[in-house]
């Protein structure tokens, strides 16, 4: 499977993260999104006329929506991540997959504006981002009352991976995560998963490893 990827894109990171968690090896094709705007060039536009990345190519299947790519990776390699078949659980997965689009539009827009100087109404983007974070906080809190640490169940699903990157990187767009204790716990639970990988802007949880001690004289 080939991923057209930009290292700083949270949407591309969703795919890399899901693949890492599902144990899928991706063939990464780096795209010069910034400063080169390669995603708007003829080669990439031919693959995805919307001019966005990520793009996942597997044989003649071309996927350009990150949520669809997450579902595809999970269905292929780690079906547990799709969530259960029960009506409520299946609906919750869809609810948060759709919701993740609002995170992209708001927090993602603010981040592109503040970091890579893309145009946008920063006040409006940040306000929409805060509204979305509040909704997520409330949703995760209600889940915790049901004894569930993640968005859909007590185990993570594609819904969590769809929402996590833009949330974790909200401060890049000038939106503070300080006021959200439940989001903080959820984010930590995801970051502590085996096989979790970071992207720039999300630091390693150094506490997961004990403090290293080194023999004196060793470099």
């Amino acid at each position: 499977m080939k991923l057209y990827d930009y290292i700083l894109s949270p949407s591309c990171y969703k795919v890399r993260l899901m693949a890492a968690l599902a144990g899928v090896k991706l063939d990464i094709r780096p795209v010069d999104f910034h400063p080169g705007l390669e995603h708007r060039g003829p080669e990439l536009m031919a693959l995805n006329p919307a001019g966005s990345i990520p793009i996942l190519e597997d044989g003649d299947l071309v996927l350009t929506e990150s949520s669809a790519i997450l579902v595809y990776l999970a269905a292929k390699a780690a079906p547990d991540w799709l969530g259960g078949d029960a009506a409520e659980e299946a609906a919750r997965v869809q609810q948060w997959l759709s919701f993740s689009g609002r995170l992209t539009a708001s927090l993602g827009g603010a981040r592109l504006h503040e970091m890579l100087l893309r145009p946008g109404d920063i006040g409006a983007l940040q306000a929409q981002g805060i509204a979305a974070l509040r909704e997520l906080e409330a949703g995760l809190f209600e889940q915790s009352l049901r004894g569930q640490r993640f968005l859909v169940a007590d185990r993570p699903t594609v819904a969590d991976i769809a929402c996590f990157p833009y949330v974790a990187l909200a401060p890049d767009g000038g939106v503070s995560l300080d006021p959200y204790p439940t989001i903080r716990r959820w984010s930590r639970a995801l970051r502590a998963l085996d096989a979790f990988i970071e992207m720039p802007g999300i630091h390693r949880l150094h506490e997961l490893k004990p403090e290293p001690h080194i023999e004196s004289g060793e470099a």
Partner: peptide, 15 residues
């Protein structure tokens, strides 16, 4: 592109 991404990675970790 790899060279650009390597340096952007480093700088974004600092940011």
């Amino acid at each position: 592109t790899d060279l650009i991404h390597f340096q952007q990675t480093i700088f974004l970790q600092d940011r």
